[in-house]
């Protein structure tokens, strides 16, 4: 038999086309179902990014937010020669590294605790992660103001215990920003690590202990390497969101010149200074720096074991 019954009457090229379509009929149906989301991502994610990139390459304009149709790298020039912009990048990356380090250590410990606990305790611990996760950034940062401000709860407690003689200004200040940012990303980091741990067999930890590893040692030797994919995801998420943090530095930071975060400066460029070519170029530069940092971070962690996987 040559060709199918349905194509035998058709000219050869059309028959071949029909044939290949029929072969792919399953994929075609699948593609049809995936198409709306693909189109959505292209229109709402990829296209805006290309436009962002294009605007970053236009010339500055006095009367408009940017000068359409022109080509220039003046926006990038501005980014690399303006101290305010460069300082903000430095500050944000430092903030990102610090918040990430603290977050990942706490998250690993907490995820392990959730994994090891049972029943009501486990539910309580999981609940304590999910509730903040589903709470808006605004509330999460706002809550630290009455706690950490100079006349706030923490200072009251410390003063009454005579641990300090004068109130410390956690908020506004970088301490407050870091605490607030850790609080924001911690739930995501915990769950990323927990979801990996949950697939793990407790037996291997027992085996390690049976072979003479102390308890902390067995965790370091066996649990951490196994949880590495989750730890890497947690690191990437924490770092990406902390570098781009807006709410915590905006509300809990003191906004002084060298302590302003990237997100606040880029907002100002866009909305107050109306310099779109600078704002977009600035965003592109930051994004590239972020990608490079994330690649370096994952490579470092991968070096210590574990493979990067998508959550």
């Amino acid at each position: 038999m040559s060709g199918t019954h349905s194509s035998s009457a058709l000219p050869a090229p059309i028959a071949r086309l029909w044939e290949s379509l029929r072969e792919r009929s399953r994929s075609k149906r699948a593609l049809l179902l995936m198409a709306p989301l693909l189109v959505f991502e292209l229109l709402l994610f990829v296209a805006p990014f290309l436009i962002l990139l294009r605007i970053s390459l236009t010339d500055g304009s006095q009367d408009l937010r940017y000068a359409p149709g022109t080509w220039s790298i003046s926006g990038y020039g501005e980014v690399f020669t303006t101290d305010v912009l460069l300082n903000a990048i430095t500050y944000s990356i430092k903030l990102g590294l610090l918040a990430t380090a603290i977050t990942v250590v706490i998250a690993t410990f907490y995820a392990y605790a959730i994994w090891r606990s049972e029943g009501l305790v486990k539910s309580a611990l999981l609940f304590s992660v999910i509730l903040p996760l589903l709470t808006t950034l605004v509330i999460k940062t706002y809550a630290f103001m009455p706690l950490l401000s100079p006349n706030g709860t923490l200072n009251d407690v410390l003063l009454s215990l005579n641990l300090i003689s004068e109130p410390i200004q956690f908020v506004p200040g970088t301490v407050g920003v870091v605490v607030g940012q850790v609080y924001i990303v911690l739930p995501y980091a915990v769950l990323a690590i927990y979801s990996v741990l949950a697939t793990m067999d407790w037996g291997i930890v027992e085996a390690a202990r049976d072979l003479g590893a102390s308890r902390p040692r067995s965790v370091l030797e066996v649990v951490v390497p196994q949880a590495m994919p989750g730890i890497i995801v947690a690191t990437v998420i924490s770092f990406a969101w902390s570098v781009g943090a807006y709410a915590a530095p905006g509300l809990l930071g003191d906004g002084q010149n060298k302590a302003r975060a990237f997100a606040l400066v880029v907002e100002e460029q866009l909305l107050t200074n109306l310099q779109w070519e600078v704002a977009t170029a600035y965003a592109v530069v930051m994004l590239l720096l972020m990608v490079v940092s994330i690649v370096l971070l994952t490579a470092t962690l991968n070096y210590f074991g574990g493979e990067f996987e998508y959550a």
């Binding site: 038999m1 199918t4 019954h5 044939e19 029929r22 072969e23």
Partner: peptide, 17 residues
Amino acid sequence: ETPTDGEIHIGDEDVTD
């Protein structure tokens, strides 16, 4: 499953597709 080639008849009917 749809055959890539060939035919199926049930009774006198072609049911391939």
